[in-house]
């Protein structure tokens, strides 16, 4: 399996820790990926808000690079990039639309494009929970966590094909297998406020605030995420959300790869844990080497 990798722009900036931990975990799990050369931004929300063709042209260039390099599949850690890639691949099935996109590109986009997937989904498919548990050296026992997937991981369902769109459970299954206590989190697919933190702060502060508040009410130790933008809104902007809700949360918001990495025995510095704005230092002492079960 030739797995191409598209880190997405935030991987080189605001979510460097996601990138570090993703690479570390993939490495530990023996999943080899190669970053496609010369990739460009998928256009994110602004591109498709302005023009479907522009958005798809930006994505098509990346898909084309992956296709021409012979990728069997293109992985990306970012749900927003994935969503744009999938929407583009779907739209390109329409010959008229493809023509419009090709008109924007230097060379026409390859006819056959590799399927795209999220790193989360790929890990879920390539490594079952049992294997994950076997590879783990640290037990997550004692951690009370909620998984937060955000909007785009599962929506629109006919494009994302990710679990039950109202109640995805993949992160729960993984981390439960590693010993964590996963709390039922009804807002796991609610919107965090997306990129509106900059132009319209209340939209983000209030929505992220609602998510943080429920997690706090449920007694979670941390919110586990899989989207760079969600993570930034809940972590870097947590103080803004606290202001909006009139309440202190102090909830760490690690990426699922960071938690996975900890269980796999990867050192915190190799997972970029120090980059979390709300530190999870208080939780680390709870982690202990796995004691093998008596019947194992």
């Amino acid at each position: 399996m030739h797995l191409a990798y598209f880190p997405g722009c935030s991987a080189k900036g605001s979510s460097l820790d996601y990138e570090l931990s993703t690479q570390a975990v993939l490495n530990a799990l023996g999943i080899t990926v190669w970053e496609i050369d010369d990739w460009n931004c998928c256009g994110s929300t602004p591109a498709h808000a302005v023009s479907t063709e522009l958005s798809s042209a930006l994505c098509a260039r990346n898909l084309d690079l992956a296709a021409k390099a012979g990728a069997d599949q293109l992985l990306t850690p970012c749900p927003s990039c994935l969503s744009n890639f999938r929407a583009t691949a779907k739209r390109l099935e329409d010959p008229d639309f493809r023509e419009k996109v090709n008109a924007l590109l230097d060379t026409p986009c390859a006819e056959t494009l590799p399927p795209t997937s999220s790193v989360l989904q790929a890990i879920g498919e390539l490594v079952d929970c049992e294997t994950l548990a076997k590879k783990a050296t640290i037990s997550l026992k004692g951690l009370k966590l909620v998984a937060y997937y955000g909007c785009l991981m599962s929506r629109p369902p006919e494009l994302m094909h990710f679990e039950d769109p109202e109640n995805p459970m993949l992160i729960e299954r993984m981390l439960e297998a590693l010993g964590a206590e996963m709390l039922d989190f009804p807002l796991k697919t609610a919107c965090c406020g997306a990129a509106f933190g900059i132009p319209k702060r209340p939209l983000t502060a209030q929505n992220s605030g609602r998510i943080l508040e429920l997690a706090a009410n449920l007694g979670a130790d941390a919110i586990v995420t899989c989207c760079p933008l969600c993570q930034m809104n809940l972590d870097l902007r947590q103080a803004q959300a606290e202001k909006a809700m009139g309440r202190h949360f102090g909830l760490p918001v690690p990426y699922f790869t960071q938690i996975l990495g900890l269980a796999l025995g990867i050192a915190p510095q190799d997972l970029g844990l120090a980059k979390l704005v709300v530190p999870m230092d208080a939780l680390l002492p709870k982690l202990a080497p796995k004691t093998s079960a008596p019947n194992a």
Binding site: D184, P186, L187, L214, A216, N217, L218, G219
Partner: peptide, 8 residues
């Protein structure tokens, strides 16, 4: 649209 326990 949605019904969920508020944790309290």
């Amino acid at each position: 649209s949605q019904i969920f326990p508020n944790g309290k």
